[in-house]
Write a protein that binds this DNA or RNA. Structure first.
Length: 307
DNA sequence: TGGACTTTGCTAAAATGATG
DNA sequence: CATCATTTTAGCAAAGTCCA
């Protein structure tokens, strides 16, 4: 896809989704509950919402979602509610879910209809650094806490959707976040792993993030850092998790600044970047007397984000 | 030149934490 | 519980260094 070549899509109305299932496998288990919120991006408000239980005979995940098979079998108009859900989907520009990789596999399998909307994943979206979220997959609980949003009844579909709606409502630059989640972010700031997993690539190869080995290979073989730049001649090793940047992004930005990224501390290393919960590399770096940077220190070295 | 030792970094496996 | 994504760590081989 060449994002720069075409106009980004309009994202005015979102269909925020959440599922509760009886297990992990769409082949072996069933969706027991669907919740959905139709959300206006420009108004930052909920337009309509639905929730329905689907009848199941057993629910091995009852300990998690507290939905008994008996409750799911009580007479209620789930077919009509599901039709309403499909009407809501027709009004939406994109589907938003927390962990798209999980939720989207259930659509197209009865009783859930096929969904043709583009997907945005909130657990891997590039949330602003000031929220202090840990990189990688962010939990809904952490996201809610960072936005001072309370989840009514966790692990119930509509409660999670409603919490997500309130989180999005509090997001200053929601439009940019959504576009980024659809692959329209500026290339330098885009977290490749998170976006690939959300965009619905059909092959496993395309969805799968780069492996550690691939990362090492990149770091040690074919990337030639710029000979100039504020970090020219510096060799960095990362340990622990950074809250505002993914590892891939840190690699990219250090190298863009002329630095080299290695995955092991040695005498050639000049700086160790220690994030949350650092590993033994920190001890080794200390023993070698290397410069140790925290996240703020690294960001100062890197300067402003490239546009 | 060659043996001994140190350093470097690649790789696989394990650990952790997220989802229901 | 199953699965996935991410990160750390240990082990190993290759490369580098030192010295007789």
């Amino acid at each position: 896809m060449t994002a720069a070549a075409a106009q980004p899509p309009s994202l005015e109305t979102l269909l925020i989704l959440d599922l509760e299932t009886t297990g992990f496998s769409p082949e072996k288990h069933r969706c027991i509950e669907l919740g959905a919120v139709l959300f206006s991006v420009s108004l930052r408000t909920t337009l309509s919402q639905v929730s329905m239980l689907f009848p199941v005979d057993q629910n091995p995940a009852q300990r998690i979602n507290r939905i008994s098979p008996e409750a799911s079998q009580r007479p209620q108009p789930w077919q009509q509610t599901l039709e309403l859900f499909q009407v809501m989907a027709q009004h939406a520009d994109a589907a938003v879910a927390h962990n798209v990789g999980f939720d989207r596999r259930w659509f197209g399998r009865p009783p859930l209809p096929r969904l043709t909307l583009p997907w945005v994943c909130t657990c891997t979206a590039p949330w602003p650094s000031h929220l202090g979220l840990r990189p990688g997959r962010v939990s809904l609980k952490d996201l809610a806490r960072a936005h001072e949003v309370q989840i009514g009844e966790a692990h119930r579909a509509l409660a999670d959707c409603a919490a997500l709606a309130r989180i999005l409502a509090r997001c200053d630059d929601l439009e940019a976040l959504l576009l980024s989640g659809l692959g329209w972010s500026k290339p330098q700031t885009q977290d490749k792993t998170s976006l690939a997993s959300c965009r619905g690539s059909t092959t496993k190869q395309a969805r799968r993030p780069r492996t550690r080995m691939q990362e090492c290979s990149d770091a040690n073989h074919h990337k030639t850092p710029s000979p100039t730049g504020p970090l020219a001649g510096k060799t960095f090793v990362l340990t622990g998790a950074l809250s505002s940047l993914s590892r891939a992004e840190v690699h990219q930005r250090i190298e863009a600044a002329g630095g080299i990224v290695r995955n092991c501390v040695s005498r050639k290393t000049t700086h160790l970047v220690a994030g949350f919960n650092p590993g033994s590399k920190l001890d080794k770096a200390r023993s070698l007397g290397l410069a140790i940077l925290d996240e703020d220190g690294l960001l100062k070295c890197l300067g402003p984000r490239p546009i």
